[in-house]
Amino acid sequence: MKILSASAITDAVAELCIHANRFLPKDVRERMESCAAGETSACAREVFRQLKENWILAAETGLPLCQDTGLAVFFIDVGQDVHIKGDMREAVNEGVRRGYGAGFLRKSVCEPFTRKNTGDNTPAIIHTTLVPGDTVRIRYMAKGGGSENMSRVTMLAPAQGWDGIREFVIRRVAESGSNPCPPVIVGLGVGGSFDYAPILAKQALFRPLDDINPDPDLAEKEEELLCALNRLHIGPMGLGGVTTCLAVKIAKAPCHIASLPLAVNIQCHSARHEEVVL
């Protein structure tokens, strides 16, 4: 039995929050650079130029990439052979409190009815899974509100199938237009239940943009949808262009014979997420 102190979790979480908000992941930078090279319109090229200058400046100065430093979303895989000394949830929230304080990150969490800001960006959204092993894997995402607002969950009829999924996603991205800071990344959760589909969609957003889905059928669907979404010609920041979507990532789970749950989680181009294994 491995022993892990709650304070080690707090320290790791604080560091994740600060680092992820300053450094855009390499796969996102590379995908944006290759998409920028394919743009011909002046507006699209100028947006990509500003975004590149922005990620360079953020890395150099320590300023957050975006003023929306997000709701802190965590997926934590806790090994069954680990004994955590202390309150894990409180340790994570304390890490958020410290990271968002010391990193000069924005506190963007409020009570839903009074809209009173909680002042320290807590509580975080924490999904915990018990897994075999003796490590704790913490995945963090700084999820911005603008793109989250454009996300949807729907319960399709089984007869609608892939065509129905495809149409719903295309219409959703089209309707979102310039709002979620395109080019976007689209995470899809297909199947499961009304509550599980969005969790699958959010987890899909953690995948590197340049990976290929190990399921060949899903890999083909991801490519097909990416191609279709880029025909919308919304373009970077909605100003027109061939880059509306950087990637589509699909996660699936078996579902009820009566249902076809679908969650569309939209991610802006500032796709900030990192992980650590303790």
Binding site: N54, A58, L63, P64, D68, G146, C181, L239
Partner: peptide
């Protein structure tokens, strides 16, 4: 319109 996600640069 200003460029979304370029908050460090705009600052």
């Amino acid at each position: 319109g200003a460029t979304g996600g370029a908050g460090a640069l705009l600052s």
